[in-house]
Nucleic acid binder design. Structure first.
Length: 408
DNA sequence: TCCCAGTCAATAAT
DNA sequence: ATTATTGACTGGGA
């Protein structure tokens, strides 16, 4: 079992290629902002002059882009020219440094992005295509530095504050209301043990009921909103990790290990602690199987009882309790054939008979510590999916759901 | 109302 | 200095 399929992929890196080059020509066939105005809270950045298209229009028309290749290239260009994420983000993408870092490090595959989510990638692509992209940014950098120096200098000599209205967008104005400096919101920082506890809870129940949340909150001495937020964030971040691993797996998994693909690269797989880290007692080991190839795509899975599924108690270890039939079954947006590179496209599941190892054979000597992690994440994701399916179906297995009290 | 995708922005880590 | 991480917020859906 192993699909070499490799071969080809050669030109994966479309960098220069530029898929998006559609440029003008037949732009905007569809509607176009009828009424003037269009308000559009967004539309920041001047956007490259290009035809008068708004980014959204471009996004809408954009063909499928290889987000991974794009971010890789962007990272390369930025580092090669000593340009920082902050500058790049603020002037090119209209995003903050943290967001840029996140995007560059963990780009989601195009087909999983919403229209809004695609925007930054279209901008990056556009930027990469601009022959003067780098020098323009360098100019910005110089300007900023100059302004900074000036400010500094004048404040030193004058002992004054100079407000340069440049770059900044709106700095929060200091409403230093006397006596009320505490409006600063401390920024909750969860301790390691709290995170541990939350992760534990998550494994048992990714979607805790309000009651459970309350309990957790009081037990850990946290605000319920914090617990809620934590679950939201954790769920979506785990989901994202999966996307990444999915991509990597799809890319160069093969006997040859490594990649041949000039553009697919390893990365970092955060594992480190993402999920377990310390996992005292429990130890996840045996959680094998769960051989889902690429679930997603709304894979339909039928499981038996997810509730008990996470170890914790450390006793059960039923092998493959969830056999998933993740057939290609395209979801709503199946989108038919879109032409062009299907880099990420649906790689139909090859699940064939289920079971079987998912990917990364790891030929050689053991050494695949992160495997558990992957499995765990997949299991978690499965739970998510299951949860939604059940909810949607709202039929059986009312394990503990919140009853629809209302309902007569 | 509950979820999620995207982000922000404070602060950790390099 | 930069880049990475992450709790909280916002807006859109159903």
């Amino acid at each position: 079992p192993e699909s070499p399929l490799s071969s080809a992929e050669e030109s994966v890196n479309g960098l220069a290629g530029d898929p998006l080059a559609s440029q003008s020509s037949s732009l905007k066939p569809p509607s176009e902002d009828p009424s003037g105005g269009e308000s559009q809270p967004g539309t920041p950045l001047p956007l490259p002059g290009h035809s008068g298209l708004s980014i959204q229009e471009m996004v809408a028309m954009s063909p499928e882009l290889d987000t991974y290749a794009i971010t890789k290239k962007v990272k390369e260009v930025l580092t090669d020219n000593n340009l920082g994420q902050r500058l790049f983000g603020e002037t090119i993408l209209g995003l903050t440094q943290g967001s840029v870092s996140d995007l560059l490090a963990r780009p989601k595959p195009w087909h999983k992005l919403s229209l809004k989510g695609r925007e930054p990638f279209v901008r990056m692509q556009l930027w990469l295509q601009d022959p003067h992209s780098v020098e323009k940014l360098m100019d910005m950098k110089r300007l900023e530095k100059k302004a900074y120096m000036k400010r500094r200098l004048s404040s030193l000599s004058d002992g004054h504050s100079v407000d340069g209205g440049l770059v900044g967008s709106e700095y929060m104005q200091g409403s230093q209301s006397p006596g009320q400096q505490q409006l600063k919101k401390p920024r909750v920082v969860l301790g390691p043990e709290e995170k541990e506890a939350l992760k534990k809870a998550y494994q048992q129940k990714p979607y805790p009921s309000p009651k459970t949340i309350e309990e957790l909150a009081s037990q850990l001495n946290l605000k319920t909103s914090t617990v809620i937020n934590w679950f939201h964030n954790y769920r979506s971040r785990i989901r994202r990790e999966l996307f990444i691993e999915e991509i990597q797996a799809a890319g160069g998994v093969g006997p040859g290990s490594e990649a041949g693909s000039p553009s697919l690269r390893g990365s970092k797989s955060g594992e480190g602690d993402s999920c377990d880290g310390t996992e005292s007692e429990g130890t996840v080991e045996t959680r094998q199987s769960l051989g889902i190839g690429l679930e997603d795509h709304r894979g339909a899975c039928k499981d038996h009882d997810m509730e008990a599924e996470s170890e914790a108690g450390g006793s059960n270890n039923s092998p493959a309790q969830l056999d998933c039939t993740a057939t290609g079954l395209a979801g709503p947006g199946s989108s038919g054939g879109q032409g062009g590179l299907g880099l990420f496209s649906l790689t139909e599941a090859s699940s064939s008979s289920s079971a079987s190892s998912t990917n990364i054979p790891a030929s050689g000597p053991a050494r695949n510590p992160r495997d558990n992690n992957l499995r765990k994440k997949k299991a978690a994701n499965l739970n998510n999916i299951i949860h939604r399916l059940e909810k949607a179906a709202s039929k059986e297995d009312p394990s503990d759901l919140i009853h629809p009290l209302t309902r007569t």
